[in-house]
Design a protein around this nucleic acid. Structure first.
Length: 333
DNA sequence: ATCCAGGCTCCTG
DNA sequence: CAGGAGCATGGA
């Protein structure tokens, strides 16, 4: 039986969420940096501007308890605890194709299409992951559906602390991005490849990107503008193929490739074992004196097969000092 | 002040 | 092919 998974009402789009979904957990992750400039968490919602198929839209995304999708007079035909993610257009409602693309973006952003039950079953038997999935049940792998943003953000984050990376991103966005105004709030769009393809290395080093990484950003922007690289032609059924294609891009090494695979290309088996934060989370979680080697990490992760990206994401979450202000319902399959 | 941060390329031996 | 220098800034 086909259930109604989304509903388009011009100004609003309603997306059915799976049972393994907690909007507050997702919001807490999205609110992890006060210096974030490409979305804003406020009053129990997240606000964001984005460009889909060349059209700029500004959105509010919040959560509605219960099943708001489908015919109000019929019984909900799916999960025991249905919920609905509500997209509200702040800008004038765009045409249907843009609305559909927006819905697609939000589904990817919140990773609504992954069934987390196998992950939770696995994690529940793992001494390291169990407390994390219990504490953050319903947290989804928040991604960057836009390839240019995902790759550029990874470049910016290479070998600098996250706080500084956010500062660099803000400078880049405020220099090369577009801004949308709505009711006294300003929403920034991440720069397009076109905007950065024509930038100079000097413009970016002025923002304190080091020369080498400025070249990576501009080079990748040009690859996209010239049509040599796109999310579509990078996507393939084979993880190894995608990995190889990413690694052929200048500036993309093992860490960046895995990062983009997990945050943009929906690869649940991507595993950035080179990642300093993952290593620190494991050091802390396992009570080690030193950061574990990559070999040690892979050994510890043998049970995570197919879910390495989610395990990594929950381990990253364990490092964030974010408290949720509500009573959490922790329920594991 | 010192260490290190959600690394990568390029050059040695 | 493994190992290491260089990049270069800022948070803690």
């Amino acid at each position: 039986m086909e259930s109604v998974l989304w509903q388009d009402q011009e100004k609003e789009i309603l997306l059915q969420t799976p049972a393994e979904f907690c909007f507050e957990e997702c919001l807490a992750f999205l609110a992890r940096s006060a210096n974030e400039c490409t979305h804003e968490v406020r009053d129990g919602a997240v606000y964001k501007a984005l460009k889909v198929d060349g059209e700029v839209v500004a959105l509010k995304v919040d959560f509605v308890q219960g099943n708001a999708v489908g015919d109000a007079f019929s019984e909900p035909d799916f999960t025991p605890e249905p919920g609905t993610l509500r997209i509200t257009f702040l800008t004038p409602p765009p045409k249907q194709s843009i609305r559909a693309a927006t819905a697609r973006y939000v589904r990817d952003w919140f990773d609504l299409d992954t069934d987390l039950r196998p992950f939770y079953e696995m994690a529940h038997k793992d001494s390291l992951l169990r407390p994390l999935v219990e504490a953050h049940f319903g947290l989804r792998l928040l991604g960057y559906p836009d390839l240019f943003e995902a790759v550029t953000w990874a470049f910016i984050g290479q070998q600098v602390n996250l706080a500084f990376a956010y500062t660099l991103k803000r400078r880049l966005v405020e220099t090369f991005g577009e801004q949308v105004q709505h009711e006294g709030h300003a929403y920034w769009l991440f720069p397009t490849p076109e905007a950065l393809a024509s930038a100079s290395v000097e413009q970016l080093t002025t923002l304190k990107l080091i020369r080498q990484r400025a070249e990576y950003v501009i080079g990748f922007a040009k690859l996209m503008v010239e049509g040599h690289v796109s999310k579509a032609n990078l996507s393939s059924s084979d993880l190894a193929t995608m990995r190889k294609a990413l690694l052929s891009i200048r500036g993309v090494g093992p860490w960046t490739a895995e990062y983009v695979l997990m945050k943009c290309l929906n690869q649940r088996a991507a595993f950035p074992v080179q990642d300093a934060a993952l290593q620190n989370a494991l050091k802390q979680g396992l009570g080690l004196d030193e950061k574990p080697s990559q070999a040690t990490i892979r050994e510890r992760a043998t049970g995570w097969t197919g879910w390495e990206a989610y395990a990594t994401f929950y381990l990253w979450r364990s490092l964030l000092k974010i408290e949720l202000s509500y009573e959490k319902i922790s329920k594991i399959v």
